[in-house]
Design a protein around this nucleic acid. Structure first.
Length: 117
DNA sequence: AATTTGACCATAA
DNA sequence: GTTATGGCCAAAT
């Protein structure tokens, strides 16, 4: 079969793939960067997930980026986010997620099961 | 086209 | 418990 030239490249960008997964995270649940990458079909791309979400800053998105945290169960603070990190915690608390005294979330309890529902 | 960037993760000492 | 380090890879500049 002549493949008309280009290989079967995804019409959507890789990052957009991550956005779709993040969008599927139900309220009151959190997912880790590594998990999002894995569910998207790209294990090991955790870093790219973080970078993808970083590009969302200031853009109109229906993506619950605040439901994505790191594998340690805590929010990834960074000088680049200038307050957005603090906003994230507020949004999660508003969804009923409780934080530990160390500012961590109990992934055993609030962790999202992509294969659930 | 090469360099820089990054909100990560796992392991080791 | 902490700190350091390597690996991971695409998008933006």
């Amino acid at each position: 079969m002549t493949q008309s030239g280009s290989t079967s490249a995804p019409s959507t960008s890789l990052y957009q793939r991550f956005y779709e997964v993040v969008r599927r995270i139900p309220p009151g649940r959190v997912a880790t960067y590594g998990q999002v990458a894995r569910v998207a079909g790209y294990p090991g791309y955790a870093r790219q997930v973080g970078y993808a979400l970083f590009r969302l800053q200031g853009q109109n998105t229906d993506i619950p980026w605040h439901r994505v945290i790191n594998a340690q169960g805590c929010i990834s603070y960074s000088p680049f986010r200038l307050g957005y990190d603090d906003l994230q915690k507020a949004l999660l608390q508003a969804e009923g997620i409780h934080f530990d005294a160390e500012g961590r979330v109990d992934l055993q309890q609030f962790g999202w099961d992509p294969w659930e529902a």
